[in-house]
Design a binder for these strands. Structure first.
Lengths: 129, 129
DNA sequence: GCCGGATATCGACATGTGTCAACATTGACG
DNA sequence: CGTCAATGTTGACACATGTCGATATCCGGC
């Protein structure tokens, strides 16, 4: 049932529009429109790296001060990219005192993986259930 | 060994730069740079739909004339999007007489799925091997 | 309460991108 | 070989996007 599609999509999109492999049936224009923001979010070198840094960081979370040193970009630019990732539903945001932590969203990753999974039946429910 | 990373990447990028889950370790700037074109290619509603149409079409292939009717876009625009998908290594191109067929590239799909796969060990080699 | 550090927002700028109309190219078929 | 249908290429345009500096906001410590 609840296979990570439920609370995935960011505010404003219908929750059922993901998780269907692209190869199973033609994705509808509406589905495409609602998935694309997530893809746009990761289709940038800085943001892809930021996401990977958060995902692979201890506990699946990292504060901005952990991330900044990895880039030659200004702090506002990093902040902007993190906002994009957050608004796309790929990472959560949590404020702890002076610091802001960004947290991985495993459900979002599963949804993306599901998009590209071959529709072989066996592979589709392997991870989730 | 040959786990779909070999002949994946389009001309000009090193072939080993994909297939490592984002959550396993921070993706390197170089890896990011070489994967991003693929992500950019699908981060557009028209192209995502085109890719899905090709993938889900009978035999994993479709000619331009099959695709055109699904869109309100001009033929040159569709042609442009297909070129982007092809140059990103997501679909192959095959000319048959007057028609041009675009073919799905399962290896590319696996590579993308692998990017977002949780690094749980079990899940990583589930589909491929 | 004030100061300093961490992060976000704003405004501006250069560059990239999606789209089209016009045209070029290719191949089938008489 | 000339015509037509299918597809690709080019140039131009509006719009989105990545980046920065300047500034604002929030919070902890003194």
């Amino acid at each position: 049932m609840s296979n990570s599609c439920d609370d995935l999509v960011p505010p404003g999109a219908d929750p059922l529009t993901c998780c269907v492999p692209l190869s199973r049936e033609p994705i509808s224009p509406e589905q495409a429109t609602s998935v694309v923001p997530m893809l746009k979010a990761i289709a940038d070198p800085a943001r892809l790296r930021l996401l990977s840094l958060v995902l692979s960081h201890e506990g699946g979370e990292a504060c901005v001060c952990d991330l900044l040193p990895h880039f030659d970009l200004s702090q506002p630019t990093i902040s902007h990219h993190l906002k994009v990732l957050h608004e796309a539903g790929l990472v959560d945001r949590e404020k702890r005192g002076t610091w802001v932590y960004y947290l991985a969203r495993p459900a979002a990753m599963e949804a993306l993986a599901g998009l590209f999974t071959a529709d072989t039946g066996a592979a589709r429910t392997a991870v989730g259930a």
